[in-house]
């Protein structure tokens, strides 16, 4: 297929449909086969940590890094807000409470002080 003969929007639409296929395939790699799949039990147990590891791996750089470098000062809206959310979690575990507590620190620091 020669992409140059298609209008630009059609090439982009094709690209996007392909992205849907990428999602379908990547989320089904181990769900597709009809055969019984057996993973070694120890590996299976260790893989149970994968979702936690993924969430932490997505979150940690958002808090500790700015433009690819470690945050150098504690005067950082994200760092302080994460600290407050952490303290709130220690007091009252949950998802919504720490989120609101963190935002209550983050938004003023960012909007009023420009941190």
């Amino acid at each position: 297929m020669d992409g140059s003969t298609l209008p630009g929007w059609a090439v982009t639409a094709l690209t996007i449909l392909g992205l849907g296929v990428v999602t379908l395939v990547s989320r089904n790699v181990f769900l597709w086969s009809r055969r019984e799949l057996h993973f070694p039990e120890r590996l299976q147990r260790a893989l149970q940590m994968a979702p936690l590891a993924a969430i932490v791996a997505i979150t940690a750089p958002e808090i500790f890094l700015a433009h690819g470098h470690l945050v150098e000062s504690w005067r950082d809206a994200r760092l302080l807000s994460a600290a407050v959310a952490t303290a709130f979690y220690a007091w009252r575990p949950g998802v919504l409470g720490p989120l609101l507590a963190g935002l209550a620190v983050y938004l003023p620091l960012r909007l009023a002080w420009g941190w």
């Binding site: 936690l52 969430i55 932490v56 997505i58 979150t59 958002e62 808090i63 994200r78 807000s81 994460a82 959310a85 952490t86 979690y89 575990p93 949950g94 998802v95 919504l96 409470g97 720490p98 989120l99 963190g102 935002l103 983050y106």
Partner: peptide, 12 residues
């Protein structure tokens, strides 16, 4: 960052 903060609570 709201998404990040809620991920933080979920991780804890």
């Amino acid at each position: 960052f709201a998404g990040t903060l809620s991920m933080l609570g979920i991780a804890y």
